[in-house]
Simulated assay, not measured.
Amino acid sequence: MNKFKSIYEQKKLFILLLIVFVLFFTFFFVTKTVFASNSKATSPKLVTSITIERGDTLWSIATSYMSSEYDNVDQYISEIKQSNGLMSDTIHVGEHLIIPYYE
């Protein structure tokens, strides 16, 4: 009976250590991912609304509002399109766009 209790205690200890190990590595990787995704953001992301004027393109708008938090203009244009539900690069005079930007 004593031998059976000892094996049971060893299994409990093993399971406890396994749970601690999994939690530790889960915390480590989640924390690393969060810090990596926020490492470029030096200020809070804000939004503004603009009215499209004659001659405006997504490229010209993006180059006006883009900051160093974005890797390139294409990435920023993609975010503008996603923020506005645009499926193409076509915009029209008089429409309003939501423009995300960093302060």
Rank of each mutant, 00 (worst) to 15 (best):
S43E: 15
S43C: 07
S43M: 12
K45D: 04
K45R: 13
K45E: 10
L46D: 13
V47I: 11
V47E: 07
T48F: 00
S49C: 08
S49F: 10
S49M: 12
S49W: 05
I50H: 11
I50P: 09
I50T: 12
I50R: 05
T51N: 15
I52V: 15
I52S: 13
E53P: 08
R54H: 14
R54T: 15
R54W: 07
G55M: 06
D56P: 09
D56R: 00
D56S: 07
D56N: 15
T57M: 11
L58Q: 02
W59D: 15
W59R: 07
S60A: 06
S60L: 10
I61G: 03
I61M: 07
A62N: 03
A62S: 08
T63Y: 12
T63E: 15
S64E: 15
S64G: 14
Y65H: 03
Y65D: 07
Y65N: 01
S67N: 11
S67D: 14
S68Y: 12
S68V: 13
S68W: 09
S68I: 14
E69A: 08
Y70L: 08
D71T: 13
D71E: 15
D71A: 14
D71G: 13
D71L: 15
N72Y: 08
N72I: 04
N72A: 10
D74L: 14
Q75T: 14
Q75A: 15
Q75F: 12
Y76G: 05
Y76T: 00
Y76C: 06
I77Q: 02
I77G: 06
I77R: 03
S78W: 12
S78Q: 15
S78G: 14
E79R: 00
E79V: 04
I80V: 11
I80N: 04
K81W: 07
K81E: 13
Q82W: 02
Q82N: 06
Q82H: 04
Q82T: 05
S83G: 08
S83V: 11
N84S: 11
N84C: 10
N84W: 03
N84V: 03
G85E: 09
G85A: 02
G85W: 01
L86C: 03
L86I: 03
L86A: 08
M87G: 14
M87C: 07
M87H: 10
M87Y: 03
M87D: 14
S88P: 00
S88R: 00
S88L: 04
S88F: 00
D89N: 09
D89W: 03
D89K: 01
D89P: 00
T90N: 11
T90C: 05
I91E: 00
H92C: 01
H92T: 04
V93N: 03
V93D: 10
G94V: 09
G94Q: 05
G94A: 05
E95C: 03
E95L: 05
H96R: 11
L97R: 06
I98N: 05
I98K: 06
I98M: 13
I99Q: 03
P100I: 02
P100V: 01
P100T: 01
Y101S: 05
Y101V: 00
Y101W: 05
Y102S: 10
Y102W: 07
